[in-house]
């Protein structure tokens, strides 16, 4: 199990990891398990500016399509291109290789984040 002490979570099951002013974003293990096999992920273009809670993409699994929301605001600095050929990385390693976007110019205003214990408490 990944060490999630540095990760924070949204109620909509995304995670964010802040390091050196860059926020890396993905979805939780609970979310990938609920979605089942991920078929593809639509991600934003680099340079897009997003506010906390704004939609940044769509994830489509065998079971359903779901919107993805950024836990914090920022400018999209990178997207995980590997996911276009290997979306199953989100299932296999949601906190590592399954990351989705990196943001800089991070702005936490308007964000509503839970720590690991808080996320577990809501069923995550």
């Amino acid at each position: 199990m990944a060490d999630l002490s540095e990760y924070r979570f949204t109620k909509s099951h995304e995670w964010v990891h802040l390091e050196g002013g860059v926020a890396t974003v993905g979805i939780s293990d609970h979310a990938q398990a609920e979605l089942g096999d991920v078929i593809f992920i639509e991600l934003p273009t680099v340079g897009a500016v997003l506010k906390a809670g704004e939609k940044f993409g769509t994830i489509e699994s065998v079971k359903a399509a779901s919107d993805l929301y950024v836990p914090v605001g920022g400018t999209v600095a990178a997207v995980n291109d590997q996911l276009s050929d290997a979306p199953e990385r989100v299932n296999g390693d949601p906190y590592g290789e399954g990351w989705m976007v990196r943001l800089n110019n991070v702005d936490e205003s308007g964000s509503d984040l839970l720590d690991e214990a808080g996320y577990k408490a809501i069923g995550g």
Partner: peptide, 8 residues
Amino acid sequence: PLQYSGIR
């Protein structure tokens, strides 16, 4: 059971 090892 909706899935065991994964739908794929």
